[in-house]
Design a binder for these strands. Structure first.
Lengths: 195, 195
DNA sequence: TTCTTTTTATATCGATCGTCACAAAACGCG
DNA sequence: CGCGTTTTGTGACGATCGATATAAAAAGAA
């Protein structure tokens, strides 16, 4: 029907993701994206739209995968406490291996873009809400089956666990020591064990 | 000796602070700063140096005041638990009143600038370390006098409290509801009360 | 006054920004 | 084979970026 694309969409979007993720929105130029993806800027515009649309596209793609990862952890039939352990273990391991200090793409967006862009603020709020809900449901299950002994409201515990997650994501951008991150998490699990 | 300055340094630095704080480093231009401060760009360069130097100057100024505020809270002779309450009450109240969703200038810097600028990363790490130390010393005092009953290591509790602080600062950039912020904090104090 | 020093405002530098016209190139379809 | 459609690369648009050269203006010192 027409001239075929010469690029692999997934490869290009992944390269664009990495660039936006590490450098942020403002510090990434369309020419940066062109260089990293091997495309020209007109091809980028033709294929995906303008800079903001590309950012939204790759962020949505990132969110989809991140939430799938969350779903895999919390949707598994592991005991609730085990799921939470796996969640924070993965978070800390991801941070430890994060040589470029990318942190979390959503958290980075929350700070740089969300305050002056309602669309992205809604996206970020939605993602944070989903994580909070994963936590809450997990904690409720644990309180029901007795493996989580604290009687504190699951809603507040979920809020704290979300807050701790975001805090760790901030520290991840500053090359924090692993001991600091594990120290944030240890009292959380002590809290779940208390009566 | 020479022509006197026509601007008030403190007023100018405060205006520059507000601009960098709300918009970030990359999204703020020297012309933005000139407009907001009422100066011309050559006058800014002559008085304070280049863009990065101005950012550093106003960030240092912000940090000085923020740490003074911390010192006032934790250096007071209030009981340790009361100091921690005052700290988080002030944090939540500041966030509630933060119509422009500025969040914390240091946290914003941690995410936007620190990953690719060692000087600012060191500054951020230092500030986080000081806050952590305020928390730790306060918790140790509370554990000594028996007002904080938990036997969990003060070092880890301080790390969690720092992490929660940073998490709240992230949420502050996304116009989060007050109930979410108070929910993050409530289990922290429940944790301090547990034996 | 004249000289020195610093701040001021005008005007602009080259570089880079996001974006796009344009036409050649590469396909399926008739 | 053209024909229509989409992608491609070249080149460049006006706007804005960080930073300055330049000189007039404003003070104290001589």
């Amino acid at each position: 029907m027409a001239r075929p694309r010469e690029f692999d969409e997934d490869t290009v979007l992944e390269a664009a993701t990495q660039r936006f993720w590490t450098n942020g929105y403002e510090a990434t130029s369309m020419r940066d994206l062109a260089d990293r993806t091997g495309m020209t800027t007109p091809s980028l515009y033709n294929a995906f739209g303008d800079k903001r649309a590309i950012y939204r596209l790759v962020l949505d793609r990132y969110v989809r995968r991140a939430l799938e990862s969350c779903s895999a952890i919390f949707g598994d039939d592991d005991p609730p406490l085990r799921a939470l352990e796996r969640y924070f273990d993965a978070l800390i391991e991801e941070t430890r291996a994060d040589a470029l200090q990318k942190g979390c793409f959503v958290v980075n967006t929350a700070l740089e873009v969300a305050p002056h862009d309602a669309d992205f603020r809604d996206l970020v709020t939605n993602v944070f809400g989903r994580i909070e809900k994963y936590m809450r449901d997990c904690i409720v299950r644990g309180q029901s089956d007795g493996t989580i002994r604290t009687k504190l409201p699951a809603a507040d515990l979920a809020r704290l666990f979300l807050g701790a997650t975001l805090g760790i994501r901030v520290l991840a951008r500053t090359s924090a020591e692993r001991e600091l991150l594990t120290g944030v998490v240890r009292p959380l699990f002590a809290l779940l064990r208390t009566k």
